[in-house]
């Protein structure tokens, strides 16, 4: 993956597949470290599956037996000296608090740090693809933060769908302006 934002797009698809109705993507940045959290309230994973998800030979896809989403994201973090951690609670065991958190950290000054890239595009593509999910995005830096909660947009839009072209374009511009205000990207 050429951009971490592409890894985020990929990992968030697992939350979609897990049947989550809320997915949070939280980026936290200091001068040295970028932390990326993807949190969902999907069905969660059982301990045995959770242990094996960093293994490329574990996958939920049915078209072949190899899954590289988590391994690639983990590699991207570890090659900077960071790490990736996953916690998960399966719905059978945690009927009221099921879900999964993927948390990856990156040392930004490391030679092998992959740039974040077009995160705005990742957010708009996720919303366009899954307008029924509540997407919460936040990117915190030392200068300020960029935020989006699709529930706030839905409250304004009423029965106009989130994936309406004009709305998706607006979301993209809304995020880009917030980045300008926050003095980055």
């Amino acid at each position: 993956m050429k951009e971490l934002s592409l890894n985020i797009l990929d990992i968030a698809q697992n939350s979609v597949k897990a049947g989550a109705d809320t997915v949070k993507i939280i980026l936290n940045e200091t001068a040295e470290i970028l932390t990326i959290e993807i949190r969902d309230n999907g069905c969660g994973m059982k301990p045995d599956f959770l242990k094996s998800v960093s293994d490329p030979f574990t996958t939920t896809r049915t078209t072949r037996k190899v899954g590289l989403g988590i391994p690639l994201f983990k590699l991207a973090s570890q090659q900077t000296g960071g790490d990736l951690k996953i916690t998960s609670r399966h719905k059978d065991e945690f009927p009221d608090s099921h879900g999964t958190e993927v948390i990856a950290s990156f040392y930004k000054n490391h030679l092998d740090f992959t740039p974040l890239g077009d995160i705005v595009s990742t957010v708009t593509v996720l919303i366009q693809g899954q307008p029924g999910i509540r997407w919460i995005f936040e990117h915190k830096t030392q200068k300020g933060s960029v935020k989006l909660d699709t529930d706030e947009l839905k409250a304004v839009l009423g029965d106009v769908p989130l994936d309406t072209f004009e709305v998706i374009v607006w979301i993209g511009e809304y995020l880009k302006e917030q980045y300008l205000e926050a003095g980055q990207n």
């Binding site: 947009l153 304004v156 839009l157 009423g158 029965d159 106009v160 309406t164 004009e166 709305v167 607006w170």
Partner: peptide, 10 residues
């Protein structure tokens, strides 16, 4: 501005 889009799209 989003509300204006809503009016237009409805």
């Amino acid at each position: 501005e989003l509300a204006a889009i809503k009016e237009k799209m409805q």
